[in-house]
Amino acid sequence: MISVLEFLARLAVWLFLAPLLPGIINKVKAWVAGRRGPPVLQLYYDLARLWRKGVVLSMLTSPGFIAGPAIAWVAVLAAALLLPLGPLGTSLSFRGDVILLIYLLALARFCTAWAALETGSAFEGMGAAREVSYAVLAEAAVITAVLTLSMQSGSVSLSAMLTPSAGPGAVLLAVGLFAVLLAENCRVPFDDPNTHLELTMIHEVMVLDHSGPPFAAVLHGAAMKLLLFSVLLVQAVLPVGELSVAAASGAMIGGVLLVTVAVGLTESLTARVAFRRVPLLLTTAFLLCVFALLIAWKGGAA
């Protein structure tokens, strides 16, 4: 009974807190630009409105156009549920769950790109191509970060890997993972979520043809993915599992807020890089993770 309640609480955190993050980012951006900006809860209003709306489909799309966002959403939620939530711990932990998490995100990517190609639009094809291509480098960085954590803790399960801090390479790992977070969630400097020019977008251009409830699933999934990467980053760097419940909760909430504000600041203070430089940036993130790994291997473990 307790475990069911706990699971529901965890589910609630992911489902109901996730849309808060884009709102905070937008507030930060507005604050830097000296505007008032949309309310923090704007995404909640948008989701509620989209959920009630009807749907317009392209004449070319198959049922996969609806199934794609649904499965992608389920995959992101499942990946999120595998992740321990600081003092709440995790409801399911097993050896190798971290690999499942990475591949669940890949499943979400497959479904999103599939749905994008449904429409036969050149722009959405372009976005899908960019998404799956840059993901190759992002995945290399993520698996290297995971290797670092695994080496640090001597384990292949998330709850054990995320309990201690990332050791002496923590700063490198934090910067590398932050870059991956920006790339995977299509934020500046990799992508601009606010742009209105289809030619220059990655993620937003893939969902141009979605509308109504499927679009709500896409937006909510994206918000959950952002929260997932923030939680992962905070727990990878801070020794959340070794703190008391209160301190851990504070560290978690503070850390996630810090990451969110940092995303907003990055977005306000830097410009999107040219597409041909995106691989360079991602390679840098990968190399940062490699250095963290080398420190964990040669320095930390000894």
């Binding site: 749907v55 489909l57 199934a67 699933a217």
Partner: peptide
């Protein structure tokens, strides 16, 4: 579920958005 939700009032078909 998403299918049911999206289809509850039927859906309109249109051209793909191509800028």
């Amino acid at each position: 579920w998403l299918w049911w939700r999206a289809h509850r009032h039927g859906w309109a078909r249109g051209l793909t958005w191509d800028c």
